[in-house]
Structures are given as C-alpha cells and as structure tokens.
Simulated assay, not measured.
Amino acid sequence: MSAPVEVTEAVLRARPLPRHEEGEDKDSRGRALVIAGSREVPGGALLAALGTLRAGAGKVRIATCRSVAVPLALAMPEARVIGLAETAAGGIAPAEAAGLAARAEEADAVLVGPGMTDADAAEALAGALLARAAGAGVPFVLDAVALRALRPGATPPGLRGRLVITPHAGEMATLLGIPRDAVLADRLGAARRAAAALRAVVVMKGGGSFVATPEGESFHIARGNVGLATSGSGDTLAGILAGLLARGAAPLDAALWAVFLHGVAGERLAMRQGPVGFLARDLPAEVPGLLARIAAGEDDRGA
C-alpha cells in the first residue's frame, strides 16, 4: 500500500473550502448541532461549539444536560442551548434520541461525544441517533465515548461516506478489538483498517495524526506539538471539523483542514506562550486567521 500523503498548505489549497460571499446570511454558512457535555464536564460542549463557529459555521446549537444548559448558554451567548433529560450519572438520557434525530435533520453537520462522561448512556444515545438519522443526509462526527456506538461492518448504509470519527489510541483499540499497544505500533494501519470496516473517514489522533478513507487513501499531518496534549484539545478539534462540515466541506477535506488548523494553532500558541501550558480554549481564536492566511497562499510555521 502506498505511503500516506504529507499534508501541507499547498495540499489544502488544492482542496479549497467553500467560499462565502458578502450578502450571505448565517444559515448559508451552515448550521452545526453539537450533542455534548455532561454534569461533570459541560466545558466539552463549550469548547466544541467554539470550534465550530471559529471554523466559520454560521450557527451552532448545543444539546446538553438540562442541569448545565443555562450556565452553558450564559458562557456562550452565540449558541442556542437545548436542555435535555439526563441520567443519574449526569449524562444525556438515551430517550432523547428521537428528538435529537429531528433536530439533526435541521442541521448541516452533527457532532456527538465531547465531554460525555456516562459512557453507557452515550453509547446508547449515539447508537439510537445514528439509526434514526442515517437517512437524513447530514454528515456526522463521532468523538470520545460516542465512538462506542460503532461496530465494524455495521455502519448504517445511509451514513456511509458521511461519517467522520476522531479516536485516540485507546478508543481505536476498543473499536477494533485489539490491544492499545498494537494500535500504537501501527497507527496508520489501524486507521486504514477502521476506515474500511466502518466506511468512515478516520482521524487517528496522536503525535502526528493520520487520516484514512474507506477508499484506501491516507494522509499524514505532522503539524502540532506537545502542548496540544491537554484537556479539551480533542473537543476543540472535533468542533473545528464539524464547523467545516457545516460550511459544506466534504468529509475528507474537512478532516484534513481541521487537523492541520488544530496543529498549527498549537504551534502559534507555543511560540507566544511557551511549549506547554496554553489551554484548549485558546486554540479556536487562532483558526480564522489561519484560514485566511492559507487561502491567501501564505505558509505558516507558527509565526
């Protein structure tokens, strides 16, 4: 099998994102639905939603636990926040899947998983939601514990070609039913195997991320640094990805741009603040400028 393509600014410019012209309204820039958060980690939903808007989406709805909906709405006035029934463990109740499927049909991209701590409830919710919304034609991003809803070979046909997943090594090991060490020994191979089995675009996160497609394409993004290994960083990445999907980017293009932007954002923050200690909440604000620089033909090395 051929070596992965190294992703650079030039590679991204050959895969341009949708353009938005003066006079367009916020609906034309895309509507993202972020199903995320929990009683203990409401911030996961906040970070993901920030990522969607900083990536250029016009609207974001956050669906989260009712007990944290009001403070989350105050923390992020740009979002519409929907409070949902919750489990005793503080997760979104699986019974909310039918209502969320209806809301998914109104969105241009759906993200499920950031900040969810009740793993059993998240698995049940995501599984029911995917089954109900598979025919809606909306792209989905699955992150964190929501990945537990997936089974190799069992992706709903309506989601094939419209599903992006963002596992780290431990989550990939669970998906494939292999030891974590086996994933770490061949992260690209694991990404390719999962992409083929799930018919999804796979972002294999880590120090130098890999992206693989069901058709056998693969890519390597070497940008980033150790500072990105911090709480909430993955939530932000998933949000950026969902925002690009909401704008109309194809799943593979959205994945490549999102991982690259996330990595370079970390580099820029490291240059200004130091190699470790910057926060996940700092990352989204770097994205609009990076989008403009890359589109203008400029390369960026953290300057």
Rank of each mutant, 00 (worst) to 15 (best):
residue 163 L to F: 09
residue 163 L to G: 07
residue 163 L to I: 02
residue 163 L to Y: 08
residue 163 L to R: 07
residue 164 V to S: 08
residue 165 I to V: 15
residue 166 T to D: 00
residue 167 P to G: 01
residue 167 P to I: 00
residue 167 P to V: 00
residue 168 H to C: 05
residue 168 H to R: 06
residue 168 H to K: 06
residue 169 A to K: 04
residue 170 G to C: 03
residue 170 G to Y: 01
residue 170 G to I: 04
residue 171 E to V: 00
residue 171 E to H: 08
residue 172 M to A: 13
residue 172 M to H: 04
residue 173 A to L: 12
residue 173 A to Y: 12
residue 173 A to W: 10
residue 173 A to E: 10
residue 174 T to P: 00
residue 174 T to A: 15
residue 175 L to G: 07
residue 175 L to Q: 09
residue 175 L to R: 06
residue 176 L to D: 06
residue 176 L to A: 11
residue 176 L to F: 05
residue 176 L to Q: 08
residue 177 G to N: 10
residue 177 G to D: 07
residue 177 G to A: 08
residue 177 G to F: 11
residue 178 I to A: 15
residue 178 I to C: 14
residue 178 I to K: 13
residue 179 P to S: 10
residue 179 P to G: 08
residue 179 P to F: 12
residue 179 P to A: 09
residue 179 P to N: 09
residue 180 R to P: 00
residue 180 R to W: 02
residue 181 D to R: 14
residue 181 D to Q: 14
residue 182 A to D: 12
residue 182 A to Y: 03
residue 183 V to C: 07
residue 183 V to H: 10
residue 184 L to G: 11
residue 185 A to C: 11
residue 185 A to F: 13
residue 185 A to W: 13
residue 186 D to V: 11
residue 186 D to W: 11
residue 188 L to Q: 09
residue 188 L to D: 02
residue 189 G to D: 08
residue 190 A to M: 03
residue 190 A to E: 04
residue 190 A to T: 08
residue 191 A to D: 03
residue 191 A to S: 13
residue 192 R to T: 05
residue 193 R to V: 03
residue 193 R to S: 14
residue 193 R to Y: 03
residue 193 R to E: 15
residue 193 R to N: 03
residue 194 A to V: 04
residue 194 A to T: 05
residue 196 A to I: 03
residue 196 A to Q: 13
residue 196 A to E: 14
residue 197 A to L: 15
residue 197 A to H: 09
residue 197 A to W: 09
residue 198 L to K: 08
residue 199 R to H: 15
residue 199 R to E: 15
residue 199 R to K: 13
residue 201 V to P: 10
residue 201 V to H: 11
residue 201 V to G: 11
residue 202 V to M: 00
residue 204 M to Q: 13
residue 204 M to H: 02
residue 206 G to Q: 10
residue 206 G to K: 11
residue 207 G to Q: 12
residue 208 G to C: 07
residue 208 G to T: 12
residue 208 G to I: 12
residue 209 S to N: 04
residue 209 S to M: 03
residue 210 F to A: 09
residue 210 F to W: 13
residue 211 V to A: 03
residue 211 V to Y: 05
residue 211 V to D: 04
residue 212 A to K: 01
residue 212 A to G: 12
residue 212 A to R: 01
residue 213 T to S: 14
residue 213 T to N: 06
residue 213 T to L: 03
residue 214 P to I: 02
residue 214 P to Q: 09
residue 215 E to S: 14
residue 216 G to D: 12
residue 216 G to A: 13
residue 217 E to G: 15
residue 217 E to P: 01
residue 217 E to S: 12
residue 218 S to F: 02
residue 218 S to Q: 10
residue 220 H to I: 13
residue 220 H to Y: 14
residue 221 I to W: 00
residue 221 I to V: 15
residue 221 I to T: 07
residue 222 A to S: 15
residue 223 R to W: 03
residue 223 R to E: 13
residue 223 R to V: 06
residue 226 V to F: 00
residue 226 V to G: 06
residue 227 G to N: 05
residue 227 G to T: 07
residue 227 G to R: 02
residue 227 G to Q: 03
residue 227 G to F: 01
residue 228 L to D: 01
residue 228 L to S: 01
residue 229 A to N: 04
